[in-house]
Every structure is written in structure tokens, then in C-alpha cells.
Computed example of a mutant assay.
Amino acid sequence: MKIVRWMGGMVWVAALAACSGQEQAPQAAVPVLVVHPGEQAGQAPAAFPGTVRARQESPLSFRVGGHLVKRHVDAGQRVKKGDVLAELDVADFALQAR
């Protein structure tokens, strides 16, 4: 029974502490610096190194180079042995063969 009274008293004290009538003063506005990107007088243009990669990459490749004409399957699709996955433009290969 003592524990219940103790817990009830703690809840009552917490409720009274939360109901204090003091309002906090509004905070003053903080000035900020705004910079618009672009070339400014007296400054060299900024260059940042990076790597550009394709959204979809395949670890597989063709034995010959060329432009991909058509892709017959999508990522995650089941295939069987002998299925055609993609087609290459034959013009490049024909020029190399000559």
C-alpha cells in the first residue's frame, strides 16, 4: 500500500511541475548567410572529383564490342540455359571482321 501512495505522490508532483505558469521568452531571430551558387567575381570555378556510374550494371559482357540493340530479360528474371539475353548491333562486328 505504501508503494501505491509513493507512486501516486510522484505522479502528482510531476503533474504539478509540468503545469508551471512561466512562459519562455521568444527567441530572437538568428541572422543567416545565404549564398547562391554560381560564378562570382574574383573566384575560380569550383571543380569536385567524383565517379559517374550507370544505374544498372552487369558483371557479364559479350565477347565482342558493340552497341546493345535489345535486352530480352530484366534484372531478377529467371532464365534457362540457351535463352537469348541481349542482342548487339551487327554493324560494328561486321566492320571488325572485314
Results as ranks from 00 to 15, higher is better:
D89V: 07
A47T: 15
L85V: 15
M1T: 13
W12V: 15
Q96P: 08
A28Y: 04
D92M: 02
Q96R: 04
G38I: 06
G8K: 06
D83S: 02
S58R: 07
V73M: 02
S61E: 05
G65R: 11
M7W: 05
G9W: 12
A54R: 04
M10F: 11
D92L: 09
R5Q: 06
P37W: 12
A17S: 14
G9H: 05
S58G: 01
V35Y: 06
H36A: 07
A41Y: 03
V69N: 01
H67W: 09
P45Y: 08
Q96F: 00
A29C: 07
G8Q: 00
H67D: 11
Q56R: 10
Q96S: 02
G66K: 03
V30Y: 06
D89A: 14
A46N: 10
F48E: 12
W6Y: 00
R71Y: 02
E87G: 00
F93Q: 03
V4M: 14
A41L: 10
A15D: 02
R55M: 13
V90N: 02
L16M: 13
Q96T: 03
L88N: 06
A75K: 11
M10W: 05
V52E: 02
V30E: 11
G9S: 10
H72F: 15
A44M: 14
V90H: 01
G65S: 13
I3W: 11
W12A: 15
V32P: 03
R5Y: 12
E23S: 11
K80M: 09
E39M: 01
G8F: 04
L68W: 03
M7C: 04
I3M: 01
K70T: 00
F93K: 01
R55N: 13
H72Y: 15
A94C: 01
A29F: 09
S20Y: 08
A54L: 11
A17V: 15
P31M: 08
Q56P: 01
A25H: 02
V11A: 14
G76A: 07
A44N: 13
Q27F: 01
G82R: 04
A14N: 05
C19P: 00
V4I: 15
A44Q: 14
V11H: 02
Q40K: 11
P31E: 08
V35I: 14
A15W: 08
A44W: 08
A47C: 04
F93R: 00
G66Y: 04
V35S: 09
R63M: 13
K2Y: 08
R78F: 07
V52D: 03
V84M: 10
A28M: 05
A75G: 10
E23K: 09
A14T: 14
S20Q: 12
G9C: 05
R78D: 08
E87P: 05
F93P: 00
P59C: 06
A94R: 12
A25K: 08
F48T: 13
M10V: 13
L68A: 12
G9Q: 08
P49Y: 09
R98W: 05
